[in-house]
Design a protein around this nucleic acid. Structure first.
Lengths: 214, 214
DNA sequence: ACCTGAACACCGTTCAAGT
DNA sequence: ACCTGAACACCGTTCAAGT
C-alpha cells in the first residue's frame, strides 16, 4: 500500500484507540503491534506519529488530565472549598481510567494538561496567601493522596477468601476478607475521611500563618 | 548439566538478586532471562521456584515490607505518635527501593509482611478506641499518602529546564524548573507537612468520637 | 510525508530431556 | 527435584523500499 493520499492515522486517533484498549484490557494489553492492529495499520506506522511508546503513554496520560475539571479555581471560592472540589474531580477522572494511574503518577514533566493542573492549584494557594513553599507542599501532598488512592484500591488489595487471613497470624484482620466485596464503598468512605483530615489539617496550619503584609 | 546435586537456586537467592537488579537498573531491567543470567543459570530455571514472574514480584515486594519497622506499635504509645513513626519508617523503606513502589501499591493480597503491616496499624487504631470502619479509613488514607509519595517524587515530576514552562501558558510555574534540582528536600518537607495535616485532622475526628462505653 | 514488510534483539512461559 | 536447550508466541524499534 505504502503512503495513502489521505493519512490513515493521526495522534488523536491513536490516543483514542489506545485509551479504549487500556480501559478495556489494562496497560499490559497496550503493545504497539496490538494497537496498530486495532487501528488497521502495521506496527511501525505508529512511529510516524510518536517517537517512542513512552511518548504515546505521555499523550495518553495527558488526555486524562485534560478531563479534570478546573472551574473551581475560577471564581473567588475559598481555597479549602476549591481544593476539596478539585481533589474529588481529580479522583473521579482517574477512577474512570484506573489502569492509567501508574502513568499519571510520573508527574507533569512537559505534559500541558498536567501542568495546567499544577499551575491552577499552586496559583489558587498563593493567591489565598499561602507562602510558595507551603503551597508546593500542599499541592504535593494532595497529589500523592489522590494518585495513591487511584492507584491502589485499599479494599481491593485484600483477597475475598474467607480463610485467607489466619487469626493466629493476623489477629486484627478477621474481617479483612469482607473488604474485597464492598470495595468501592470502603474506598469512597476512606477517601472522603482522609481528604477531610488533610484539609482540616491544612486549615489549622493556615490559621497559624503570620498575618499578611500585602 | 541438568540437575546439580546441590540446588543452585533458592527463592531467597533469587529475590536477593532481583532486588539488587531492580535497585540498580529499575523495574524494566528485571526480565526472567536477565535475572537468570545474573544468577548464572538459564532462564527457565526460575520456574522451579516461582510459578510466574508476578509471584516473584510479590515476593520481592514483600521483602521490602518486611523491613518496615513495627516496633512503635508494641508499647502503649499514643496512636498518633505511633502512626507518625510508622508512616515515616514506611516511607523510608520505600525510599530505599523506589523502583518497587508500583509493586507495593498493589495491596497486601496474600503477602505476609504486608499483612503484618495492615494488622498492626488496624490493631493499634481499634485498641485506641477507633471504630473499625474509621480505623480502616485511616489505614487506607495513610497508605495512599505514603505509597503515593514514594511512587512519584513531586519535585522530580518537573523538568529542570529553565525554559520548559512558558509563563504565558502557566503563570504560576515560573519557579517550577527549580523544583527538580532541590528535589529531595522539597519532597521531604512536603511529606512532613502533609503527614502533620493528616494526623492533625484525624486527631480532630478522634476528639469528636462518642465517649467510649468499654 | 506516511505507510509497508523484513529484520534485530529482546520478552514470559512451556516442555521434553537429562540426572 | 532441579536444571538444560529448543520452541512458541509475543515484544519495541529501525530501516530500506514504496508512493
Amino acid at each position: 500500500m505504502a503512503r495513502p493520499r489521505k493519512p490513515l492515522l493521526s495522534t488523536g486517533r491513536i490516543v483514542e484507540a489506545a485509551r479504549a484498549l487500556v480501559d478495556a484490557e489494562g496497560l499490559a494489553a497496550l503493545s504497539t503491534r496490538r494497537l496498530a492492529a486495532e487501528l488497521g495499520v502495521s506496527g511501525p506506522s505508529l512511529y510516524n506519529h510518536f517517537g517512542t511508546k513512552d511518548e504515546l503513554l505521555d499523550a495518553l496520560a495527558d488526555s486524562v488530565s485534560a478531563r479534570v475539571d478546573l472551574s473551581m479555581f475560577e471564581d473567588g471560592r475559598p481555597w479549602r472549598t476549591a481544593l476539596d472540589d478539585w481533589a474529588r474531580s481529580y479522583r473521579a477522572a482517574l477512577a474512570r481510567h484506573p489502569h492509567l494511574a501508574p502513568v499519571l503518577a510520573r508527574g507533569p514533566g512537559r505534559r500541558p494538561a498536567a501542568l495546567r493542573l499544577a499551575d491552577a492549584v499552586f496559583g489558587a494557594l498563593t493567591e489565598a496567601g499561602w507562602p510558595p513553599a507551603q503551597a508546593t507542599s500542599i499541592g504535593a501532598a494532595l497529589r500523592w493522596y489522590v494518585v495513591g488512592s487511584a492507584l491502589g484500591s485499599f479494599a481491593g488489595g485484600f483477597v475475598p477468601d474467607e480463610n485467607a487471613y489466619d487469626p493466629a497470624d493476623y489477629p486484627h484482620l478477621g474481617q479483612a476478607h469482607l473488604l474485597a466485596e464492598r470495595g468501592g464503598t470502603v474506598d469512597e468512605r476512606a477517601f472522603t475521611t482522609g481528604l477531610r483530615a488533610l484539609l482540616d489539617g491544612f486549615e489549622r496550619q493556615y490559621a497559624e500563618l503570620p498575618p499578611r503584609t500585602a
